[in-house]
Design a protein around this nucleic acid. Sequence first.
DNA 1: GTCAATAATTAGAATTATTCTAAATCCAAC
DNA 2: GTTGGATTTAGAATAATTCTAATTATTGAC
Lengths: 144, 144
Amino acid sequence: MKHPVNQQDLSARLATSGFRFTPQRRCVYDVLLARRDHPTAEEIYSRAKKAMPEISHATVYNCLDALVSCRLVRQVQLERGAARFCPNMEEHCHYYCDKCGAVFDVALTEGATSVPRPKGFKVNYYEIAVHGLCTDCARNKSFA
Amino acid sequence: MKHPVNQQDLSARLATSGFRFTPQRRCVYDVLLARRDHPTAEEIYSRAKKAMPEISHATVYNCLDALVSCRLVRQVQLERGAARFCPNMEEHCHYYCDKCGAVFDVALTEGATSVPRPKGFKVNYYEIAVHGLCTDCARNKSFA
DNA sequence: GTCAATAATTAGAATTATTCTAAATCCAAC
DNA sequence: GTTGGATTTAGAATAATTCTAATTATTGAC
């Protein structure tokens, strides 16, 4: 199952971490799957509002935290300010354009990337962020 | 020069990115060098205030941004909320304990870690964050 | 050294991002 | 069907950062 798209699958996945299925969690997850542009909680809130006008900020954060806990979504902090969210759970790193703010997922080839593991530390997950200029911004550097 | 500790060196380094030397920048940099615990801007502010009681939040942010721009300091975002700052410019990644908040620098052995480089993207720097439980917290899991 | 131009600092306000609160609602299990 | 706990809601509260306008400091030209 790449992404749990039906209610049974999503509900089961949530349950593995002790969470209940709710229409709001479904909605927030759908918003993330629909457009993979690494939106902030605020952006997710306004997109979710189109389908569920009653949804609140607190609920969006609650849903995101639940989805992150059951490993359906990754939280990504690329800069000062708002966190971003990403439903791509394949091994990948994030390329972030410091000029235009674009985020690109780049797959990590199996075994090519090794992270040192000091003994004793229990690793949960890791996040690799590469900062710089995207192709477009690098080309138009002079017009900054 | 591992860290520019005297005024001439710090001034010269700031100048390479078009910044001026100021006592506030000296002070903020000294605060970071004095205690390598990856403090937030707020923590840096309160430590800096001991030496310069007049320093303001805006100045601390300005100083940090200048130091980051001229590559004397790294800004690190490990979680939702405040950014942290680190004067260690050796190649290293950050181990972050999601329970107690401790941050550990772990050196990246030369060549061992490779990050994929999509062509066109102009890399400035990259950041590797490993999340999990530190040795102490992993041991005391049951007392969470 | 003095001066002008510009960068940097300051206090505090403003904004942005996130969390908290208390009441209402929902769901699962008995 | 009742109970308990999880979840949602609106809105307040807090935390983190940025902005503003006035002042001060630093640099480079003279």
